[in-house]
């Protein structure tokens, strides 16, 4: 298994990457390559050119910025998982990073890549959604910021346009209660259903693999803010949601799992 032929260029800066992307419609960024290369090997993606941003050293950092933690887009899952800053200020994010794939995947995959890929079955996009992170996007026309909840648009579709690079993820500190429930059959697998719960003032809940993209469990959130009990709120986990069906879980089983996992997440988040 190997990809179809393509051209390759390594960008030494964000602006260089942007200018290549702007000149070639079919060019694609590659960061860690751990979402893109598997697709290319199966020939489900066949870009004509890869623009490697993996070596842009100044996009790999974790910085305490007072009310939030700023994470460079090229920061690897392994670095997030073991970062003292993240563990202290956004413990859920460190925990979620530690559940992604396996250690070798975590040595290569980047937060920016995972978020840009926007897979509804991935853990980190759902985590930053529950954490109300802000995404910093750079293009030839400058820098813009997008709230996580406006970023994910559909199946592997995000707010990013060709010629834009996600450069930083700003994650508000969240040291209140939290829980991440990842339900899978083998440790290395993606979640069949996952639930992130963050108590930071209000309670925010996001769902993994319950839709074509990462989503918030809005019905649960508003029930909770309306004073519903955990049990009552959890029962609404898949309200208004059409979950996918596959070999591991039909839609009805997914709905059931979502309720169980939301309840467990809320119980755990209120006890830590």
């Amino acid at each position: 298994m190997f990809p179809s032929s393509f051209d390759y260029v390594r960008a030494s800066s964000v602006s260089e990457a942007i200018s290549i992307l702007n000149n070639e419609e079919d060019a694609k960024l590659i960061a860690g390559g751990h979402s893109l290369l598997p697709l290319m090997k199966l020939r489900l993606a066949n870009p004509s050119k890869l623009v490697d941003i993996g070596r842009i050293g100044d996009l790999s950092y974790i910085a305490d910025r007072g009310d939030h933690v700023a994470i460079g887009a090229l920061t690897r899952h392994a670095a997030i998982e073991s970062s003292d800053v993240v563990k202290a200020s956004v413990p859920m994010l460190a925990y979620v990073a530690s559940l992604v794939g396996d250690p070798s995947v975590r040595h290569r995959g980047t937060l920016g890549g995972s978020v840009s890929h926007g897979d509804g079955a991935s853990d980190l996009p759902a985590a930053i959604l529950a954490l109300d992170a802000t995404l910093v996007v750079t293009s030839a026309s400058g820098v813009r910021e997008v709230a996580a909840k406006d970023f994910f648009k559909g199946f592997l579709e995000t707010d990013l346009n060709q010629g834009e690079v996600l450069t930083e993820i700003k994650v508000p500190k969240a040291t209140g209660g939290w829980s991440y429930q990842k339900f899978n059959r083998r440790a290395q697998d993606w979640a069949i259903v996952g639930v992130a719960a963050v108590r930071n003032g209000s309670t925010k809940i996001s769902l993994v693999n319950m839709a074509s993209m990462p989503i918030r469990a809005e019905a649960v959130e508003s029930a909770l803010s309306g004073g519903a009990s955990i049990e009552e709120a959890a029962a609404l986990a898949s309200e208004g949601i059409e979950p996918p069906s596959d070999l591991n879980a039909s839609a009805d089983y997914r709905r059931h799992l979502a309720s169980v996992l939301v309840r467990r997440a809320l119980v755990e988040a209120s006890s830590n």
Partner: peptide, 20 residues
Amino acid sequence: TVHVNGESVKSCTMLAVQAD
């Protein structure tokens, strides 16, 4: 699995050019 800069990596999921 091989080590890239001392860390385990799945060498089927990395391009040789990325390892330059």
